[in-house]
Design a protein around this nucleic acid. Structure first.
Length: 269
DNA sequence: CGAATCTCCTGGAGGC
DNA sequence: TGCCTCCAGGAGATTC
């Protein structure tokens, strides 16, 4: 799925749209995460794109009088086409026509979304988000205070967007391994020191993902044919029944909050 | 408020 | 080769 670093990359690839005007929005298939509201989305027509930003995994188009907000879900892809658009393919749900460009949104699994709002502050999608993991506000003290009264397993807490955004399942598993912390430990059981390690390792894992080319899609390869982050050698993610690279203990996987969670029972406690 | 569970959806993988 | 079943995965909604 597109992870936070990849959304950042997508954002940077859309800079050419800044300054263009939305001439039309074509909705072919409205049933995404939230039903696409043709009438509401049409309010973006004739508005100029002032800037494009990212918050968590949301892409935000700042228009003259409102905002278009995209989320790529887990299979969403945005293609920017210059000139005549190619044939429409399966799952090409939306086209945004911006002067000479066509922004095409394709999403096979339809977990993505596109909404229009005139007020970011009252937008429910953005109102309850925690800090960005790579920004200075995400500190050991912050995390410690957030989780010190919670009995939920730590893995679920670091994947909770109200606590910190952008930590997907892979990052959560890997950062806990690097910190030597078991995913099932309760939040209120972690020390400040452990929070410090966890914050550092979450940031390190994210930076590694950025440096390795962003995408974590299973079948992703970059232009050089190199594998994306998903297929890089993880320490624990996807390695159930294999041996820990550090201590040769068998990696186990358990179910936490409907998510597969991998860890080394010896290195992580 | 917190915690646990449910839900959306399809392509790909594995079994037979 | 073809069908069937299972599953991942973000995050809001729902229920207690």
């Amino acid at each position: 799925m597109p992870e936070l670093p990849e959304v950042e990359t997508v954002k940077n690839g859309l800079k050419q749209l800044i300054g263009t005007t939305i001439d039309n929005i074509i909705i072919r298939f409205p049933r995404l995460r939230y039903p696409l509201d043709q009438q509401l989305l049409s309010k973006s027509i004739d508005q100029k794109i002032i800037s494009i930003s990212r918050r968590a995994k949301y892409l935000i188009f700042h228009l003259e009088h409102g905002y278009l907000i995209f989320h790529l879900g887990m299979s969403g892809r945005i293609t920017l086409i210059s000139g005549i658009a190619p044939k429409v393919l399966k799952h090409d749900h939306v086209d945004l026509i911006c002067n000479d460009y066509v922004l095409r949104f394709n999403d096979p699994r339809r977990f993505g979304c596109l909404i229009y709002t005139e007020d970011l502050n009252t937008c429910k999608l953005l109102s309850n988000l925690g800090p960005e993991p790579l920004e200075p506000e995400f500190t050991a003290k912050y995390l410690y205070d957030k989780i010190k009264s919670r009995s939920t397993p730590i893995k679920q807490l670091i994947m909770d967007n109200a606590i910190v955004v952008g930590v997907g399942n892979i990052y959560a598993c890997e950062s806990l391994f690097l910190s030597g912390i078991s995913p099932i430990r309760k939040g209120n059981n972690l020390t400040l020191k452990e929070c410090n390690s966890l914050v550092k390792n979450i940031q390190q894992v994210l930076l590694d993902a950025i440096n390795s080319g962003g995408s974590s899609l299973r079948d992703y390869k970059n232009a050089n044919g190199e594998l994306g982050y998903f297929q890089q050698c993880h320490n624990v993610y996807g390695r159930a029944k294999e041996l820990c690279k550090i201590c040769q203990t068998i990696i186990v996987d358990i179910r936490l909050g409907q998510r597969n969670s991998f860890y080394c029972p010896n290195c992580q406690s």
